[in-house]
Amino acid sequence: MKGSVVSITLNGVERETLVAPGTTLLNLLREHQSLTGTRRGCDQGSCGSCTVLVDGKAKLACLIPVETIAGSRVETVENLALNNELHPLQQAFVEGFATQCGFCTSGMIMAAKGLLSVNPRPSRADVIRAISGNVCRCTGYESIVDAILAAAAGMGKPLKKSA
């Protein structure tokens, strides 16, 4: 078993990582790069907790052998709140009480970000579809859908800052 060096642009910075064959993007993020905000909920592609953007598209990090995405751009939840400013999606999740245990939150936000990048004014049905691969066991989804819609409505203009 021989490892290989894989180069990925991770949250805007090119990173080279020595990985064992078949290392998943999820393991690269969590075990090699300490980016633990991307959660492991199933390792089967069935929960959506590890959703990240690969070249701008929402994908499941647990299903990607990193050798197959060498040279790609990967964005994780850690890249959203730059300069200590929450991203509008994050702000909307906070204000809309759209988190409970928080385990699905990263994946939900990244799936939503993938949606908004191609469809900045989504309908409710669009939002529902976008997160239909993300499992939440706490909220009943309603608050999450509302938060994504609120973020979409507020993008471009600053959302109300909460105290």
Binding site: K59, L63, R129, S132
Partner: peptide, 12 residues
């Protein structure tokens, strides 16, 4: 297309 998996899965 809509009936197969989720948009995230369909990207893969």
């Amino acid at each position: 297309i809509d009936s197969i998996g989720s948009p995230t899965l369909r990207n893969m």
